[in-house]
Design a protein around this nucleic acid. Structure first.
Lengths: 150, 150
DNA sequence: TTAATAAAAGACAAAATTATCTTTTATTAA
DNA sequence: TTAATAAAAGATAATTTTGTCTTTTATTAA
C-alpha cells in the first residue's frame, strides 16, 4: 500500500471532486463521482456515508439530490478526511509499531519518524477541500486518468 | 495502520534486534527475537525467511544456528528492509492512489507528497542496520515494552 | 398519492494481510 | 549414525480491508 489506505485515497479524491462540482453549482451523485475518480461505486457509497456522518460533506436524498459542500466544509482541512477514514494512527502511532514508544522510552526511529509525521500533519492541516477547485476546473490538475480538455 | 504494514514493522524491529545480538557475539533464534520484539513467532519466521532470501540477514540451521549479520549486512540501509517486505509503492506511488499521476498530469497533492516521500526515503536511506547497536545495548532505546535495565 | 430518484443501511462476498500449525531440510553434537 | 536443534517450506486459518448486492428511507415531481 501507499501512505494511506485505499479507502482514504478514494475519500480524498472524492472530496476534491465534490468541492469542484459544488463550485460549478452542481450536486453530484455516487455514480458520477465514482466514474470520475475511478473508484468502485458501492464501496465509494460507504465511504461518502462515513464522511457525511463526520460532517465533512453534505448529502440530500431523492431527485436532484447528491453530495455537495457548503462554505463551512469548503474550508475544512484534508486532515479531517484522513482521520475520519483511517483514524489518526498514522499521525500518532510509532513508526515501528511499538505501543509503548514515547519520549521517555523511545524506539530507535522515534525522532526520525516524528519529523516526517509532523511534515505530513502540517501539510494535511494546511490543505483545504476547496483549495484546488480552480485548477481542477481548468484541467491543470486531475483526479483520474485524463486532463479535462482531452 | 501506520506508515508501514505490520509485517514491515516486525521486520524493522527484528533486524535491529539481530544486529544488536550479533554485536554482542550471539546468533539468535526466532523464539528469542519474537519474544524480545513482541511479534507472533511463526509469522516472524516467515518475515525473516523473506529477509534472508533478500540477503538482508543471514541464517544457519541446526544447533547453535539462528540469525545474524555480517559486516556487509550491518551496513545495509533500512530502506532495503522496507522494500523487501512492503515493496516500493510507498516511495513511488501517488499519495491519492492515482496510477497516472505524473509531473505532466499531476494530482492535486503531487508536489506535497513528493516532498514528504523524499524525506522518508532520505531517512531510510541514511539509517544503517547497525546504527543503534550501542544505544540498544545500553538500553537507551527499546524495541519493546521495557528498558533493558528495568 | 404515486412513481421515480438517490442516499443510507444492512447483509454478504472476495481479496489481502496477518497468524498458526505441520512437515521437511540442514546442521551439530553425542 | 542417531538424536536434537533450528530454520525453511507448505498448508491452512483468522482477521481486516475492500468490494458488491439488496432493502429501506427521504425527497421530489407529476
Amino acid at each position: 500500500m501507499g501512505m494511506f489506505s485505499k479507502s482514504t485515497e478514494y475519500a480524498i479524491r472524492a472530496v476534491f471532486y465534490i468541492a469542484k462540482s459544488t463550485q460549478l453549482g452542481r450536486k453530484v451523485g455516487i455514480k458520477e463521482i465514482a466514474s470520475n475518480i475511478e473508484s468502485p461505486e458501492a464501496f465509494l457509497g460507504k465511504i461518502l456515508q462515513e464522511l457525511s456522518k463526520n460532517g465533512i460533506i453534505r448529502s440530500i436524498k431523492g431527485p436532484n439530490g447528491g453530495f455537495y459542500l457548503t462554505e463551512e466544509e469548503m474550508n475544512k482541512k484534508l486532515i479531517e478526511v484522513v482521520k475520519a477514514i483511517d483514524g489518526d494512527n498514522i499521525f500518532t502511532g510509532c513508526g515501528m509499531g511499538l505501543q509503548q514508544c514515547s519520549e521517555k522510552y523511545p524506539c530507535p526511529l522515534h525522532n526520525e519518524f516524528k519529523a516526517i509525521r509532523n511534515d505530513l500533519t502540517r501539510m494535511l492541516n494546511r490543505i483545504t477541500l476547496s483549495q484546488f477547485n480552480d485548477e481542477l476546473i481548468l484541467g491543470n490538475l486531475n483526479l483520474n486518468r485524463f486532463k479535462v480538455e482531452e
